[in-house]
Design a protein around this nucleic acid. Structure first.
Length: 311
DNA sequence: TAAGATAAGAGGGACAT
DNA sequence: ATGTCAGTCTTATCTTA
């Protein structure tokens, strides 16, 4: 009946990245992950829950009756062909039904309608959860964030925000929201890039979620983007540290607001590289950071001016 | 070839009507 | 609700060193 989807647990016994084979695995200080510094793959997550998917979303539902619903068989056994209990108070021969039977029928009818609503929500959810699963896998986020995304999606569904919008787009938006909530550096572009919905739509849905669910997002911190870019370019710890300092300085001077954190981080890294005479092109950085060279240049000039650097 | 400059266009937030 | 405005980012093209 319940076929538990088992999560793929990468083999890390050899302490090598299963994706690129690199042995440069590093522990992420805050997220409790082991990340490959070469390709950025999250190799290991200290998650409590590696069990079947349907368990992963139970926390929020602990005290809700709806969690006792049967996930799949419920929506499969009846493909819209089920008997409908009509509101006719006569039996098959046209005789009046006794009162207690009528009340009984009313009750059954009520529950039939309820179960139908329930099952359509379940159908929607199981599709969405599968999508969130898939996306999480593609962008390498830990199970804890996947759960967070599932939670956001559930809220959205309960608030009727999914109606009229694509499940994929809302699922992707939920995942992005979960990343933002947990300050996990994943760009909207990355997430939209692995789903079928257009980036624009995902962005729209994301804003909708933030607004309607009153999510309180921590402000995106460019500092968190530094290791991400740096690891893709194999940039030394020292340069990263310099870039972080540059960013702290620019945050102090309030020139960071409203700017794309990836752009800021890229520019800071570029400046740090220049200061150390380690030549990397703007193009290279732009490519791995997912921004354009022009943006890097603009931030670069802004930072240079604000910090009074002559590079 | 890398970097800088410039222009046009998209999309969204703030604010007024 | 709709329109306008300033600001950001992107794409594209040309110039400079």
């Amino acid at each position: 009946m319940l076929k538990a989807r088992t999560q793929e647990v990468p083999d890390i016994s050899k302490d090598r990245c299963p994706e690129c084979g690199s042995d440069s695995l590093i522990e992420d200080y805050e997220l409790g992950e082991v990340v490959c510094s070469n390709c950025g793959l999250v190799v290991k997550v200290n998650a409590l829950d590696n069990g079947p998917e349907w368990r992963a979303f139970s926390a929020e539902e602990r005290d809700s009756r709806s969690r006792v619903g049967v996930p799949l068989s419920f929506s499969i056994h009846d493909k819209g062909l089920s008997t409908v209990i009509e509101q006719v108070n006569k039996d098959a021969l046209g005789r009046e039904l006794p009162l207690h039977t009528r009340i009984e029928m009313l009750r059954l009818r009520k529950w039939q309608i309820r179960s139908r609503i329930h099952s359509s929500m379940e159908r929607n959810l199981s599709q969405a959860m599968a999508e969130i699963d898939r996306l999480s896998d593609k962008v390498h986020v830990p199970a804890s964030i996947k759960e967070e995304a599932a939670l956001v999606y559930r809220k959205a569904l309960e608030r009727g925000l999914v109606r009229g919008r694509s499940i994929t787009a809302i699922a992707a938006a939920s995942l992005y929201a979960a990343c933002r909530l947990t300050e996990t550096p994943r760009t909207l572009k990355e997430i939209a890039g692995v789903c079928l919905a257009k980036e624009k739509d995902v962005a729209r849905c994301y804003r909708l979620l933030v607004k309607e669910l009153e999510l309180k997002m921590p402000i995106a911190d460019p500092v968190r983007c530094v290791p991400k870019i740096a690891s893709r370019l194999q940039i030394s710890e020292k340069i990263q540290q310099m870039a972080v300092e540059i960013l702290h300085e620019c945050q102090k001077r309030k020139i960071a607001s409203g700017k794309d954190p990836m752009g800021l981080a890229s520019a800071a890294i570029y400046i740090a590289l220049c200061l150390e005479s380690e030549k990397r092109t703007q193009k290279e950085i732009a490519k791995v950071a997912g921004v354009t060279e022009v943006t890097i240049r603009n931030r670069y000039n802004g930072l240079r001016e604000a910090l009074g650097l002559e590079v």
